[in-house]
Design a protein around this nucleic acid. Structure first.
Lengths: 329, 329
DNA sequence: ATGAAAGCGCTAACAT
DNA sequence: ATGTTAGCGCTTTCAT
């Protein structure tokens, strides 16, 4: 592999000149620049990223911690993050285990975006502690060097249940996600608020746990139907569970949108394709990723302060929520 | 940020000793090792990946070139690649544009996995030329340092059409992907073989192009139905186009699995959830990613030679393909 | 068992 | 306009 030295020797100039010439620095004469470029190309010279990083103590990489690449949400977010940072000359290093904080924080990256509930608040604070910029997407952490870019789960959860109530459904059940996850808790909190406003006792509202997975949603629905057969409205804290729950509901012979209304959360593409199309609280995943990325970059490049950003959701009405007309039911 | 020097000074030893001690080298006394470890921890010392890479000219990173993070296939593959390399101490750097070969090949990575049809054969060969190990997943390239790990598209395409023929469907149409892509071409080649064996003229077989996208599949089907209303069997070269095509078919009032059989390719999760569930040629995406990763690692670590690996597919029978009983139709 | 020192490839202040 | 040189943080050979 050709180094800058090889190029310098071949071109008959110093390494300094090569370094400047390759950047097109005005200090260097046009002739020299041309010659150096030609030689570099001929020798297939490629600069070493590390050597540069070693000098500049900048890597132009940003780390992204996931709990997995699967699922319908992560892809869009990753794409948005990638696009946002790529335009600024950064690459992303993506990592999806709970173990390897070691590698990512060996200073291979200038900052990190965390979207992995397996990583504890404590660990995140620890990492951020050393003046290392971190953005979290799956919870709110208030700490130095940590910014949070999250969906407004509380208001989203509120909208979902409000939608059911406004459409006339009163016997409402919930299928929650992972028990202590921030997202699940926050969406439940919003739900509670809507129920309370309608004078419904949250303590009496059936809640089953589907762990944010389709199969979990199907199983949770089974339990709900057995214990509370008179449910008329269902809020699933994500779309995948809603799709699973709908399968269970169909098997039970109930009519979705008629006998029982279903609303999900996220607005994944499958929500528009399932039968019947699912009413959902949509999250703008591209915006979410974009905001996380730009918040991080702003922190890295402009030393801006920490921020906590709540992104709004919007309600997409489809066929799984009908309308119970008062006096007609 | 604490460096090895800081640790050395604080512990009252040389940097050499710190370097060895941190690795647990037997040369160093147990006492010293303990002391150094304690100091390193206290100072929150983290080794610099670059400095190490600069010495060892190894990065323990591998690059993955995608044409996008979206879609139902990439997630699983990425996960498999990640898991396979993570266990060997590597991280993955994922990149999804056509531009930035510059960054990834600035020797930030020890090798690359390519799954991006926008990158030309020529460019790949060029990169691999400098003793840089490359694995391609979306085509077959025979060149030094390049291995190919691909699905056996030809035999998959053959199986798909054979399945339609064996089920009694004879008026077969095809919806192809991107016109000159290897995957589209190879699956068509397999289709042609099956048709010819059945004595059907491939030249007379209607082919529309859906560009591997759902909306493209829907549009292509529209065209086919207009020009060839008597089609009874449809092979879509991927599941997403099949799902799109099914929507068009439904709108036309035809009965899927009865009037017209549909078969897809890939075995994405939506294929089992759509209505009716889609018969498809399944690809083991985890295995695919795993094979690509291990092939690359083997090349990097053991200097093994180039390989060309074709992964088998299997046929998943679901409701979109019925059976035309002879004499009953 | 530990230390001194060279050097990986590059950049940038400081000559010339 | 170009060259000299120091040094980024680490590993490793060669002393001791």
């Amino acid at each position: 592999m050709a180094t800058i030295k090889d190029v310098a020797k071949e071109a008959g100039v110093s390494t300094t000149t090569v370094s400047y010439a390759l950047k097109g620095d005005k200090k260097i004469s046009e002739d020299t620049i041309q010659k150096v470029r030609e030689v570099a190309k001929r020798l297939k010279y490629r600069p070493s990223g590390f050597a540069r990083s070693l000098k500049s103590s900048r890597t132009n990489n940003i780390g992204v911690y996931l709990h997995g690449f699967g699922g319908p949400v992560i892809g869009d977010i990753l794409q948005a993050i990638h696009d946002a940072v790529a335009s600024k000359g950064y690459e992303i290093m993506v990592c999806s285990t709970r173990l390897s904080d070691k590698l990512l924080v060996e200073r291979h990256v200038d900052g990190a975006i965390m979207f992995n509930s397996f990583i504890s608040d404590k660990k995140i604070k620890n990492i951020a502690d050393e003046d290392f910029p971190v953005v979290v997407m799956d919870r709110v952490i208030e700490a130095p060097n940590v910014s949070s870019v999250v969906i407004d789960n509380v208001s989203g959860g509120y909208s979902a249940v409000k939608q059911l109530l406004d459409s006339g459904y009163r016997k409402i059940a919930l299928i929650a996600g992972k028990k202590d996850s921030y997202e699940s808790l926050a969406r439940l909190e919003g739900s509670k608020k809507a129920l309370m406003e309608a004078g419904i006792d949250f303590g009496q509202t059936p809640i089953a746990y589907g762990y944010f997975e389709e199969s979990g949603g199907a199983a949770a629905m089974q339990l709900l139907l057995e214990s509370f057969p008179d449910i008329t409205g269902l809020f699933c804290l994500n779309d995948e569970m809603a799709i699973g729950a709908m399968q269970t509901i169909k098997k039970s012979g109930r009519n979705i949108g008629g006998d029982i209304a279903v609303i999900g959360f996220d607005g994944i593409s499958a929500s528009s394709q399932c039968e019947p199309p699912l009413t959902t609280i949509r999250v703008d995943k591209r915006l979410w990723g974009y905001m996380a990325a730009t918040t991080l970059l702003d922190r890295i490049e402009n030393k801006s302060g920490e921020r906590i950003i709540h992104l709004p959701t919007d309600t997409v009405l489809r066929q799984t929520v009908g309308r119970i007309e008062i006096g007609l039911a």
